[in-house]
Structure formats: C-alpha cells, structure tokens
Design a protein around this nucleic acid. Structure first.
Lengths: 191, 191
DNA sequence: GATTTTCATTGACTTAAGTTAATGAAAAAT
DNA sequence: ATTTTTCATTAACTTAAGTCAATGAAAATC
C-alpha cells in the first residue's frame, strides 16, 4: 500500500531503507466511501492525500449554491485543499469520494519536521509542486485559448480511462461548460 | 539590486552572509529593452528571471498566428518558460519586455549545485512553487467559473497599478476575451 | 514637429454557448 | 424485483461574446 507511494517518490529522489521507514511513520491509510468527504468547506486542513485506489473530486460551492469542480484525483494523484493547508485557513473546498477510495494521509506538521531531518523530502516536494505548477499553466492556456471541443479531448489525456468513472455532467462542470453543451460537442465529434 | 531579491528570499528562509554571497555568485543582472526578448520560441531555456524593474509579458503563438498572453511580470515577480526550463525542451513561449527592464538571471545548472550545498534553497523554491501553484489554482477557478467582468476586476488585484503599463488589448488577451468585449465591460462598469 | 502606427471605443451583425423543458435509459436505493 | 433518482440527449429559445468595420485619440517613430 505505502510502497506505491514510495515508488512514486523514488522516481525523483533516492531514499535509504531507514529513510523509507521514517517516512512510513508519518503516513496513515484512510478509507473513504463513495459520497463521503475527505474535506468539507469550513474545516481546518492539516493533511495532504495521495490516492492509492479510487476516484475523488475537489469542488467549491459559490454564492448561488452552484458546485464547481476544480480537480479530480485517481490512482497516483495528490489531492487536498492546498490553499487552506498552506495558509492555515478554513477549507473552501469539498473533497468527496466518487468511488470507495483508499488514500494515504500525510500530516503536514510531521512533514515539516521530516524536511528538517531529511532535506531530500523538501527536494521531492519542490519537484512535485513545480510539476503541478507547470501542468496548471498548460490548463490555464487551454481553458483560455482553446475550443471546448479540444479541451474535452485534452481532458482524457490528463485523466486516462476516466470515462466510465465520472459522469459527463462531472466533466462538463470541470471544463466550466454545461452538460448540454458537452453533449453537443460529443455529438459533433461522433461520440 | 541583488539585495531586493535577497530580501524576497529571506521572507521564507534565513540565510547567513556567507550563503548570501554564494547565492549572489550565481545570479547575473540583465537589461532588456522594450520590445526585445528574454526568451523566444524554439530556443533552449536555462535561466529563471526575477524582475527588479520593468514589465514583461509571456505569450505563445498558436497555429493560426494568434498571440496568447499567459503571464505578465512586474517588480518582484518571477518569469521564464517553466515547462521548457524544467523539462529541457525548446521554449514554446516568447518573453518580451513591455518596458525597459532590469532582471536577475539565475542559471538552473548553478542552482541545482547550490541545492546540494545549501538545501535551504531547495526549501525556498519549494515554498515559491507551492505558492505559485496555489495562485494558479485560484486563476483556474476564476477563469472557468466567474464572469468576465469580475475577472477583469480581479486582474487589478493580481497586478496592482498595472493600468498605465499595459494596454487594454493586453489585458483582454490575458483574460482570453476580445478587446471589444473588454471595452463593453469597462463601459458597463462605468470606467 | 510631422507622420505613422497603435489603441480604445462604438455599432451592426453573427455565432456559440447558456437556459428551460421534456424524454427515455441507466443506475442506485429500497 | 420494484421504485426512485440520476444521467444523457434533444429541441426551442435567449443571451453573451465574437467578428467585422469604422472612427478619433494617443503614442511612437522618424
């Protein structure tokens, strides 16, 4: 279970067995059932989650009560309310399981201590956030300057094989368009 | 000149005088004149830039020859083609000076060496990229789910006092809307 | 200082996407 | 197994934003 995460980390840094064991000490396995929440708006957030199995969505609810999906997370993805976590403010996001999930929770307090003892982890998360930043830049370019039809196709590159795991309504919401509009796109694409 | 950057860095980590001197050794001051380029599409990128003075834009040109502005950078901002830099691929972006600029260039090869000698820098850039990632998430939320009118107002929070430094055409392009549409927004807002 | 280029704005028209409403199919709940 | 809820799709209509074209003002260039 935890080995999946260690393999993920070892793609960027090399840990000794002792370091791996120390890291295992600050992560905890959690089960999240379909339709239940990992984070709800208003709570304080002090964990980062790595998805071992399952599918989740991060969304916020605006003043009019409309949901807006910001992110999905499937196997090998990270998810949390990053803004709340890093700025110590109450969560704005809901993180809800779309399927029954297994995640690994990392407490950031423990992680901060680990950074001091093993700076390699600082390196790992530097690389992780750099990559996440670059991926989001591409998403910004795409959302501002590409047609919805192309953005729909790009979505499947970003979340491979997610078709049967989330509804078209979810995908439309993530893309910031209506389900009806997505439906027309699918028709025009012959899907 | 370089002290501005050191003050910026010392907001997140504490450097000794020796470490500051060592860091100064890997940064170089560069002047960029209005309408000239820091990066052009197709070149290899190996520097990260911190803006001491002036204003720049990062844009790409699509298949139809249309420009799309992804980012502005003013004093105390960082800019480069992050994707090209971190993945060692040719630049997709142009980074062009809108005003005569003074920037500090940091070679990433030298920076990588510095990370090993002084892991605190790894920490600094972890925090920097984390904050950049969080800021981009907010931008994604905004671009997908807010009205253009609100996004126009948010733009000025993000780039304070930029009004007289960039044209409305630039702002419209950054927001992914037409200059005419922005004009109507300004009219409706009584601007 | 004169000329050229860029910029902001407006109007008329077109197009893409949102809204509302209805339907049968699929999935979930009991 | 039956009922209830959610989901995908379609159509008719509305709205917001894009396109095209023209104008004077402002800025940049010579």
């Amino acid at each position: 279970m935890k080995d999946l995460l260690l393999a993920h980390i070892n793609r960027h840094i090399s840990l000794t067995n002792v370091e791996e064991e120390e890291f295992k000490g600050i992560i905890a396995e959690k089960k999240v059932f379909r339709k239940s929440f990992l984070i709800e708006s208003g709570v304080m957030v002090n964990e980062l989650y790595y998805v071992v199995e399952g599918c989740l969505k991060a969304y916020y609810v605006d003043d009019l009560g409309n949901k807006h999906i910001l992110q999905f997370a499937i196997e090998d993805w990270w998810i949390t309310d990053f803004n709340a976590l890093h700025n110590n403010i109450p969560a704005e996001l809901y993180i809800e399981a779309i399927e029954n999930c297994t995640v690994l929770a990392i407490s950031t307090v423990a992680l901060e201590e680990l950074y001091i003892r093993i700076p390699k982890f600082e390196r790992f998360f530097r690389i992780l956030y750099t990559n996440a930043f670059i991926a989001l830049r591409k998403r910004v370019m795409s959302s501002l300057h590409r047609t919805n039809s192309i953005r729909y196709l790009e979505f499947f590159e970003r979340y491979p094989n997610i078709e049967r795991r989330v509804t078209n309504y979810h995908i439309a919401n993530y893309l910031g368009i209506t389900a009806e509009s997505l439906c027309r796109i699918r028709r025009d694409l012959g899907m």
